[in-house]
Simulated assay, not measured.
Amino acid sequence: MDKEKTLLDFWEDQVKKSHTSSNYFFRKSPSHYHLMLLVMHAYKINEKLSVEELKTRLFKTSRPKAALIINEACIKGFFF
């Protein structure tokens, strides 16, 4: 339950921020949103995802485009 509360707190803090928030970033496109859902689901079930797995799981997104989205999320500090 603590894990879910922590994730919810993070999400609520991000929603309150401006266009630099994760909320804004992950709503840019369906691929961005799908990436967020994949990561949140993995976090909830305590699954470790690699970049390669994320690239493979992103629905209808080329691997180079997926890599760009993931890299941008890392640069912005949403992923590590």
Rank of each mutant, 00 (worst) to 15 (best):
S31R: 01
I69H: 02
N46Y: 01
L49K: 13
S21F: 04
P30L: 11
F26S: 02
I69T: 02
L68K: 12
L49S: 08
K28Q: 15
D2G: 09
V51I: 11
V15C: 05
R63V: 12
R27K: 14
T56Q: 11
H41E: 13
A67P: 00
K17N: 03
E4H: 09
K76S: 10
R57P: 00
N46Q: 12
T6I: 12
K17Y: 00
K28S: 07
S21Y: 01
K5E: 13
H34T: 06
N46T: 03
A42L: 05
M36K: 14
F10M: 04
T20Q: 11
T20D: 15
G77Y: 01
K76A: 14
Y24D: 06
L54H: 01
L58A: 02
K3F: 07
H19M: 08
H32M: 09
I45T: 10
G77I: 02
K65P: 02
F10Q: 08
S29K: 10
K3A: 11
V15L: 11
P30E: 11
K5Q: 13
F79Q: 05
K60V: 04
E53I: 01
E47Y: 10
K5F: 09
D13N: 14
L8A: 13
F59W: 13
L49P: 07
L7G: 06
S29V: 11
W11T: 05
K28W: 03
K16C: 07
M40A: 13
K17F: 00
V39Q: 01
K76V: 02
T61M: 05
K55Y: 01
K16S: 15
P30T: 08
H32C: 09
V51R: 03
